[in-house]
Nucleic acid binder design. Structure first.
Lengths: 207, 207
DNA sequence: GTCTATAGCCAGATAGAC
DNA sequence: GTCTATCTGGCTATAGAC
């Protein structure tokens, strides 16, 4: 939480440690969600005492918020990279972002969407950095959605917000995980199938 | 749990009470999920003491299992009614089942899909009635899926199990609830939009 | 800043009177 | 079967020594 300066050696050690904490939290959030994750597990995973965790982060909610912030930062990086590729149409950019999210999900590193009633929800809604990143992320994706609708590549009768929520939801969908747990299919194959159901739907095109 | 006989008056009273319990559990499962639901809430909602609940159901997991069983029974009823309408194609039947599930979800009565790691999961996997209903339900939907693929109405490149999981997942998707919470759209409109994203996808058909 | 030990709380489950 | 009162265990968070 502190130690933003990267000058001294001690501070760098601190940053590395906090990064390890956030990584552990991120993995546990992906595995079991906020309520089911215990601070003891996080401490054990990082290899330090629970009390030490609380020297870095004020609460369990703060731990989760840090992980959510990092996910959003990475998402914005991916969005930025795609935005630089001017030859890629908005519709394809949305597909690429979703593809990236599905891969992260299948690798067990996508934190579960905070439930509508979670105690986490309130804290996140008061977390400036998180909210700012979320809004930025939504805005950039929202632009692409509207452009894709103008291009005739996304159904114009769908409200852009519905499309946005649908993409967010697909990033946390249980379906890829269930398919993976059968052990019969590779990650890339699952990603392509889920992408197909998301963008093309279950039905075939009428000829 | 007991009192299957409907003979005596006392037993009927018991059945009505247990039905009220299951209804409350069902609502709370839909609202907050298994882990977030507390037995105290259930008792308060029914209007009896917590200890009395445990005279009817052995554990919190047993409460949830009863609710899940009832949902599956109702699902099978819907499936049975659709099966009787021979003029409706399998693809349309799948859409109708999904439409029904989305309506139940929006009315706040669809229990949340049990998470892969939940303590509930283990108990359900040992619950004969639940498993039997789940398998029956999956088999009947699976038949329709395969027929719809043979009819060329569902993408043949998708594994039937993926289609099945996708339909189950859509019944518990957070998207309809989030759309409803904005208060700007009616339930039926939301149902149609979500059905469209599910069966036709986000993209428009190439002409 | 790290640890051990523990406070404080809450939720699932039970005891025992009626 | 229903109640009140209580037990038990697990979890967040903190005290205090080093």
């Amino acid at each position: 939480m502190n130690a933003m300066a990267k000058g001294s050696f001690r501070d760098q050690v601190l940053r590395v440690r906090e990064d390890a904490i956030v990584t552990a939290v991120n993995r546990l959030l992906a595995e079991k969600g906020f309520e089911q994750m215990t601070v003891d597990e996080v401490a054990a995973d990082v290899g330090i005492a629970k009390a030490s965790l609380y020297k870095h982060f004020a609460s369990k909610e703060a731990l989760a918020a840090a992980a959510m912030v990092r996910v959003l930062e990475r998402t914005l990086e991916v969005i930025g990279q795609l935005a630089a590729r001017r030859e890629v149409a908005p519709f394809e950019r949305l597909r690429e972002v979703t593809r990236w999210a599905l891969r992260v999900q299948l690798s067990g590193q996508m934190p579960i969407l905070p439930a509508q009633n979670s105690s986490l929800r309130a804290e996140l809604m008061a977390h400036r950095t998180y909210l700012d990143l979320l809004v930025t992320c939504s805005d950039r994706l929202g632009e692409w959605i509207i452009q894709a609708q103008a291009d005739g590549q996304i159904d114009r009768s769908l409200p852009p917000e519905l499309v946005l929520y649908t993409l967010f939801a697909r990033a946390c969908d249980p379906v890829p995980g269930v398919m993976k747990s059968s052990g019969r299919h590779g990650d890339e194959q699952i990603v392509e199938w889920v992408l197909a159901t998301c963008f093309s739907g279950l039905g075939t095109r009428p000829s």
